[in-house]
Design a protein around this nucleic acid. Structure first.
Lengths: 230, 230
DNA sequence: GAAATTTATATCGTATACGATATCTGGAGT
DNA sequence: ACTCCAGATATCGTATACGATATAAATTTC
């Protein structure tokens, strides 16, 4: 039987490897937009920040490279990945397809509890002031609606796409006061789920994502034509 | 001006890092099914095979982990990822959606040259005996049809899904003599593109992928209920 | 004074080295 | 003979060390 001391020590034992810890933390920083696109990620600097050597840092960066969040430049280091407007447009189109599918499969199956949980996320979302909390609540609202589909891989793929574009969505949202369409669209989507209407849930979800995508692309094209963003 | 000797030396200089070279080679071995699911990937062994140290090997494995081809077991090493029948089913469903979309967008735009190229891949495919060459030609046939869509990200996502299930598709195909439906379906798809019919191209492509998925899942369920596959 | 070349410096990519963890082997105890 | 524990062995995960490459600075050349 393990002693109390051993249990306490086990608590201190990292369940995650150093490499995984660095990867998780960096991933969040990139998705949240704390690290701007194109930012050079110096390995020694990151290693010092996490009190580890470069080895786990490089492993973490390789992991994020495969996930599309980081780009390696041979002998020049890793940078936060940049997406063109066209690429973002494609990602949003794919998201629209997959999320519409998830909504269609989930709507007829969803439980009252899940709907209530989604409604709570939505209420909190509507009140949340800062863009950081907003991103998480938006994801929680949508993913809560999708779980009844019983398609974990589909949701994981959606999440992966979400991670790639999230920082751009937030940049737009922090510029757009009031979120004109978002609130109404969310309410309509939730209502479709309440009615257990698969067609409405799918189509409203598709339109919601495509609408966000269109706003995003026009904002980016506008922004980059002016600012001369590298 | 660089001397001839320097240019020759530059030829020998690896355009790829050791880590990327290992990743590419391992990825191909896994996708092609040379390394069976669950196989332990010993770092020292792989390092010796490539005449490098463990560091680039681990970076390569981390990259493949993020791509879903490898799974790390803490302090026990990396294994070739295994997929359940349900997971394969989900991946094939998503492929069906994305490939139908690519076909729909591409069909009205496709050039005669692209169609001829696809036809050549198809002819070679029909004659190819071994399953190894088959996989590449199948991909070439389909991807050639999709390129006119002008959606590189969509195609990359399809390819990523393809990589995850390809080894299972091949295992089935090597068991199935003659490929009953595949040849006819391919011919029908190509014909839809010849007619520049987006609806037919999309629906036939969707059915083709879903058909392959259904065969795959029933084969796997059958196989695993008998053999007691770990 | 500007362009080109050399030197210096910083950072990367990888080999080596070593402690930590898991698995294997053999013996003690029942 | 079987279980349980201890030591040995193998493999992993990471720190340290160092050659290679790119960028910046200094120097030379025209």
């Amino acid at each position: 039987m393990p002693s109390l001391l051993e249990l306490v020590a086990a608590q201190k034992m990292p369940r995650l490897s150093a490499s995984d810890h660095v990867a998780q933390t960096l991933k969040k920083a990139i998705v949240d937009g704390l690290l701007p696109a194109g930012e050079l990620l110096r390995q020694d600097e990151i290693a010092a920040h996490f009190h580890v050597s470069k080895i786990p840092v490089r492993e973490a960066l390789k992991h994020l490279e495969a996930k599309g969040l980081v780009t390696f430049l041979r002998n020049r280091g890793a940078v936060v990945a940049s997406l063109s407007a066209a690429e973002i447009d494609e990602y949003m189109e794919i998201r629209a397809m997959l999320e519409a599918r998830a909504a269609r499969l989930s709507a007829p199956q969803i439980s009252d509890q899940a709907i209530e949980q989604a409604r709570r996320h939505l209420d909190e979302f509507d009140q949340a002031g800062n863009a950081g909390r907003w991103g998480e609540l938006n994801w929680l609202f949508h993913s809560t609606l999708y779980t009844a589909a019983g398609k974990p891989i589909l949701i994981a793929e959606i999440r992966s796409l979400y991670n790639k574009v999230e920082r751009y969505v937030r940049a737009l949202l922090s510029m757009t006061p009031g979120m004109p369409n978002t609130l109404r669209e969310h309410a309509e989507i939730l209502d479709a789920f309440v009615r257990r209407d698969p067609d409405a849930a799918a189509e409203l979800t598709r339109a919601h994502v495509l609408d966000a995508g269109a706003s995003l692309v026009s904002y980016l094209i506008d922004q980059r034509s002016k600012g001369g963003n590298p």
